[in-house]
C-alpha cells in the first residue's frame, strides 16, 4: 500500500535520493566523461566537467591496439562459454533436485554452496600446476572450465529456486501425455522456465565477465580477457587517463546494461534464494 505523502516530503526524498545516487554513480560517470576528453583535458587543472571538446579519439586508439579485439573476444568466449556449459550441467541437476527430491537433496545443495566458499587462493597452486600439466594454462578452454565450476553452485541454486515454483503436476501431465524425460525437459520444463533460465544466464555471464582472480592468475597473453587487459593499464599506461577511461567504459558498458536488466534476479541469485 502506497501511503499518501505530502508533495513537499516527496520532493525532499527525491532530492536526497538523487544526490546520494549521483554521488555513488559519479566514479562511473566521471570515467565515461573522461573517455571523451583529450589526454590534456583529462588531467586539466582545475578539472573540467562537461565543457570540453568531446572526442572519440580514445576509443579509436584503444580499438586500434592490435590486441584489444582479442581481449574482448576472450571475455565473450570465456564468460559466455562458462555460462552455457554451466547451464547444460545445471539444468538436469536442478530438475532432479526440484522435482524428485530425496532426503539428501538439501545436503547436496548446501554442499554445492560450500564449494563456492572455498577460498580460491587455497587451491591456487594445485590448479596452476594441473593447468600446466594438462596444457590448459593461458587457454580459453581452461579458463572457461574454471569459471564454469566456480559459478556452477550459483547456477544450480538459482535454477533450483525457479524450478521449485513450477507445479510438478504439469510435468506429470507431460509424462501422462507420453513425453519421455528428454521431451519433458525440452518441450515443457525449459520453455516454462525461460524467464528463470534467462536471468540465471545473465547473472552468471556478469559474474564470469567480472571474475578477477583466476582470469588474472591463469592467463598470460593468449587467453587473457578484459579484466587482465585493464590490469595491464596499471602502470605506466594508466597515466593516460582518457585512454584508460575509454578502455574501462568499453569493458563495463555491456555489463552495466545487462546488470540493469537482471537487478531483480540478482538478489535471489546472490543470496541463494534466502532473500526474495
Amino acid at each position: 500500500m502506497a501511503r499518501a505523502v505530502t508533495t513537499q516530503r516527496k520532493a525532499l526524498n527525491t532530492l536526497a535520493a538523487w544526490t546520494v545516487g549521483l554521488l555513488i554513480f559519479f566514479p562511473i560517470l566521471w570515467t565515461i566523461l573522461t573517455s571523451f576528453k583529450t589526454e590534456a583535458a583529462a588531467i586539466a587543472d582545475p578539472p573540467v566537467f562537461l565543457f570540453f571538446d568531446w572526442t572519440t579519439e580514445n576509443y579509436s586508439a584503444v580499438m586500434q591496439r592490435s590486441d584489444y579485439a582479442q581481449f574482448l573476444w576472450n571475455s565473450i568466449v570465456i564468460a559466455g562459454g562458462s555460462t552455457v556449459l554451466g547451464l547444460i550441467v545445471a539444468i538436469p541437476a536442478a530438475w532432479s533436485m526440484a522435482f524428485v527430491p530425496s532426503k539428501r537433496t538439501k545436503d547436496i545443495l548446501l554442499w554445492m554452496l560450500s564449494t563456492k566458499m572455498l577460498p580460491a587462493v587455497g587451491v591456487l597452486y594445485p590448479i596452476y600446476l594441473l593447468f600446466i600439466r594438462l596444457g590448459l594454462l593461458d587457454t580459453k578452454i581452461g579458463l572457461t572450465l574454471v569459471l564454469m565450476l566456480i559459478n556452477l553452485p550459483i547456477i544450480v541454486w538459482m535454477l533450483y529456486t525457479y524450478f521449485r515454483e513450477i507445479p510438478g503436476e504439469i510435468l506429470e501431465a507431460a509424462r501422462m501425455d507420453g513425453a519421455s524425460l528428454r521431451d519433458e525437459i525440452l518441450y515443457v520444463l525449459t520453455p516454462m522456465a525461460v524467464p528463470g533460465i534467462a536471468s540465471t544466464l545473465l547473472l552468471n555471464f556478469i559474474l564470469a565477465w567480472n571474475e578477477a582472480f583466476w582470469t588474472l592468475n591463469l592467463t598470460a597473453a593468449k587467453a587473457a580477457p578484459l579484466t587482465a587487459f585493464i590490469a595491464s593499464y596499471s602502470s605506466p599506461e594508466g597515466l593516460f587517463y582518457a585512454k584508460l577511461s575509454a578502455a574501462s567504459t568499453m569493458a563495463i558498458a555491456p555489463i552495466l546494461i545487462m546488470g540493469w536488466f537482471s537487478q531483480k534476479q540478482l538478489v535471489r541469485g546472490l543470496t541463494f534464494g534466502a532473500v526474495k
Binding site: 507445479p167 503436476e169 501431465a173 501422462m176 501425455d177 513425453a179 519421455s180 515443457v188 520453455p191 516454462m192
Partner: peptide, 18 residues
C-alpha cells in the same frame, strides 16, 4: 505412465502455460 494408454485430468488442470 506414457505406455499405459491412460489419460489424466489433474486438479490444477496442469495445462502447459507456454
Amino acid at each position: 505412465p506414457a505406455q499405459r494408454r491412460l489419460a489424466m485430468v489433474f486438479q490444477s488442470y496442469a495445462l502447459y502455460p507456454h
